[in-house]
């Protein structure tokens, strides 16, 4: 366990070294949030509520969705692709740890860093500029905390899956990019899932993506009742468990391939 904690710490220090990222990053995320805020204000126009969400809930949704993205988002799929192509993975495999676990911990180190240096101050700044609504209810915060941790795991697992495909595809930068685009849309970052037409919602229900952004954001904005929140979190947890299966299968096949081809 020690070595995994150490990995989190090292990532944390590495992120600190790239300090200019955070001065500019917060500013630019704020602009991003701002633009969506205005877009949604224009969409709402005179309406009080769409799909049961008020304008204020909507702007809070946008803000928290983006700031949570700073936490769960990472590039470990691209890093894996690079490491696999450069043949470094073979070296990683003989080290005394689980490669995928290590990658996850690196992502977590990065995420924790961004949570404290990016998301939290960013959220404070954004709340001065735009009218947001924070819940006074402790259970909401508790649910939210559990939920974004789970969204981190779902997103990271999907990244691991995409990263492993590098073993089988000659070049997967296109795939990685496509995955990112799909996640931004289907996770509910750009539009809450409840805004989609019903048939689309029915399909999305059976996909893991809404666990990444939609669920924690809906919890944060109090758009879910307690019951709905608990159900959604359980569903997130189920997805975390389900996703372990394809990762392990692909990983075993990939390792076999690595041995045969010599990386």
């Amino acid at each position: 366990m020690d070595k995994y904690l150490e990995m989190i710490r090292i990532r944390f220090l590495m992120m600190l070294a790239y300090r200019t990222n955070y001065y500019t990053g917060i500013l630019i995320y704020s602009i991003n949030i701002g633009a969506y805020y205005f877009l949604w204000s224009a969409i709402y126009g005179e309406k009080d509520a769409i799909e049961g969400m008020s304008v204020i809930q909507m702007s809070t949704y946008v803000a928290v969705a983006w700031m949570a993205r700073a936490f769960y988002f990472n590039n470990i799929d691209r890093e894996m692709a690079a490491e696999i192509k450069e043949g470094k993975v073979a070296v990683e495999l003989i080290r005394p740890y689980n490669y995928l676990g290590m990658k996850t911990m690196q992502g977590l180190g990065e995420g924790v860093f961004r949570l404290f240096f990016f998301s939290v101050p960013g959220m404070v700044i954004v709340s001065f500029i735009f009218p947001l609504q924070f819940s006074a209810d402790l259970t909401t915060w508790l649910f939210f905390a559990v939920s974004i941790l789970l969204s981190f795991f779902i997103n990271t697992q999907i990244n691991l899956l995409t990263g492993i495909t590098t073993f089988f595809l000659f070049n997967n930068t296109g795939l990685i990019r496509a995955k990112r685009v799909v996640i931004d849309l289907f996770s509910g970052l750009l539009i809450p899932i409840s805004f989609f037409p019903n048939w689309a919602q029915d399909i999305l229900k059976y996909l893991p993506f809404q666990g990444i952004s939609y669920v924690p954001s809906m919890i944060f904005t109090n758009s879910f009742s307690n019951n709905e929140a608990i159900q959604a979190i359980i569903l997130q947890g189920v997805w975390v468990i389900i996703l372990v299966i394809p990762i392990q299968i692909l990983w075993v096949i990939a390792k076999k391939q690595l041995i045969i081809q010599g990386g």
Partner: peptide, 15 residues
């Protein structure tokens, strides 16, 4: 130092 302005600017460009 490395900056992440570049990728983020793509976002702003979308507006």
């Amino acid at each position: 130092a490395r900056t992440s302005i570049m990728p983020m600017m793509y976002n702003i460009g979308n507006y």
